[in-house]
Simulated assay, not measured.
Amino acid sequence: MSTSRLAALAQSLASLRRADFERLGKKWGLRGLAVVNVVCAVHLFAEHVGFIHVVSGPSMLPTMSAAGEVVFENRMVSPKSLKRGDLVTYISPLDPTRVVCKRLIGLPGDIICVDPTGRLAPSTEHVVIPKGHVWFIGDNAEMSRDSRQYGPVSMGLIRGKLMAKVWPPTAAGFFRNNFVDIGVEGSEV
């Protein structure tokens, strides 16, 4: 075989390998982009639409188990659309690395008894919730760190509203707003 034929064969093998590598690189590059797209979509969904969370701790007994339950959080909720009695997630004013869940009981302008149990403050002490703030309390007041300790919470810390329990299956279902407004004498309820 002549040297020119060997050179041509070597060149065609080299170009074949280069084409295979380019095709393989393109294939894996496109797969990598697909993975990045999925991760971005999941992140955007979790940050702006809703997400599944594990909630645990004794502060929301009996509404939620202290051992932990899996819940769906709706993130498409405007803080101004929340109502008294809603289960709300927000960034803890005491520890900004934690997200907590409590029941909203006071809206801007409401007059709230600081601690109806009388344990942390006299039951005669009241506060007016300032504009742009809300008041939270755990369903199990004895085991809850909430607005009774840190006062009104800025609406800017609100992340979402809990909509439903999804796990365990025996407890699955939507959260109901069971808040009863006793009103003020002479007002309609």
Rank of each mutant, 00 (worst) to 15 (best):
I112M: 14
K83F: 02
G138H: 02
L82M: 08
R148Y: 00
E142G: 02
F72R: 05
S59M: 10
V128R: 10
M60W: 00
D115N: 14
R75T: 06
S56H: 04
C101W: 10
G50Y: 06
I137N: 08
E69I: 09
V55M: 04
P62K: 00
R145Y: 01
G132W: 03
G109Q: 14
S92T: 09
K131R: 05
S147G: 02
V99N: 15
F51G: 10
M64R: 01
I52R: 08
N140E: 05
I91M: 13
F45V: 10
H126I: 12
D86G: 04
V77I: 12
P108T: 15
G85F: 01
K102D: 14
P96F: 04
M76W: 03
N74W: 08
H43K: 15
Y90W: 02
D95G: 07
G132S: 08
V128C: 09
W135I: 10
G85C: 04
P79S: 09
S65G: 00
V134H: 03
L104G: 15
L87F: 07
G57I: 03
L104N: 12
F51L: 13
K131E: 12
V88I: 12
P122T: 11
L104D: 13
S123K: 08
R75G: 00
R75Y: 00
T89Y: 01
F51M: 12
G85E: 05
C113A: 15
S65T: 05
E47H: 09
P58K: 05
A67T: 05
L87E: 03
T63C: 06
S78D: 12
V134Y: 02
P108V: 14
E125Y: 08
M60Q: 05
M64L: 14
P116E: 15
G85D: 04
F72C: 04
F51R: 12
L120N: 13
G57S: 04
S92N: 13
E47D: 07
P79Q: 13
A66H: 01
L61G: 00
I111V: 15
P130N: 04
P93S: 11
D110N: 14
E73M: 08
G50A: 09
D139H: 00
V134Q: 03
S78E: 09
G106S: 11
T124H: 01
P116A: 13
V49W: 03
D86K: 07
S147Q: 07
V134R: 01
